[in-house]
Simulated scan of single mutants.
Amino acid sequence: MNGPARHFKGNKQSLPSKPCAACGRPMAWRRAWARNWDEVKYCSGACRRGKHRGSDG
């Protein structure tokens, strides 16, 4: 890996994050979400399908 990716490697502290709407866990920005980060609500497919309800049950 050359270029900007090499400089970034392993430094997720500077990336934006927000809590998952289903489980509340913090999720860090991903390159796949670059175009629609404002619309991303769930950290995974399981949370999106509603199978993970969080600690309240």
Rank of each mutant, 00 (worst) to 15 (best):
M1L: 07
M1V: 12
N2G: 03
N2M: 06
N2L: 09
G3C: 03
P4D: 05
P4R: 12
A5D: 07
H7G: 01
H7F: 04
H7L: 12
F8H: 13
F8S: 10
F8C: 08
K9C: 04
G10Y: 03
G10D: 03
G10C: 03
N11T: 05
K12R: 12
K12Q: 07
Q13M: 04
S14V: 11
L15V: 09
P16F: 00
P16I: 02
P16G: 01
P16C: 00
P16E: 02
S17E: 12
S17W: 09
S17N: 09
S17D: 06
S17G: 03
K18Y: 00
K18F: 00
K18A: 01
P19L: 01
P19G: 01
C20H: 02
A21G: 00
A22T: 08
A22R: 12
A22I: 08
A22P: 03
C23T: 13
C23W: 10
C23D: 06
G24N: 10
G24E: 07
G24M: 09
R25P: 00
R25E: 07
R25H: 08
M27K: 08
A28G: 09
A28M: 12
A28F: 15
W29N: 04
W29H: 11
R31C: 05
R31I: 12
R31T: 15
A32K: 15
A32I: 11
A32N: 08
W33S: 07
W33T: 09
W33V: 02
W33E: 14
W33H: 14
A34G: 02
R35I: 03
R35M: 08
R35T: 11
N36F: 11
W37H: 07
D38M: 02
D38V: 02
E39I: 03
E39S: 13
V40K: 14
K41A: 14
K41P: 00
Y42A: 04
Y42F: 15
C43T: 04
C43V: 04
S44A: 11
S44Q: 11
G45E: 13
A46C: 12
R49P: 00
R49Y: 06
G50T: 14
K51W: 11
H52N: 14
R53Q: 15
R53T: 15
R53I: 11
R53G: 03
R53D: 02
G54D: 01
G54V: 02
G54W: 01
D56I: 12
D56W: 13
D56R: 15
G57H: 08
G57D: 08
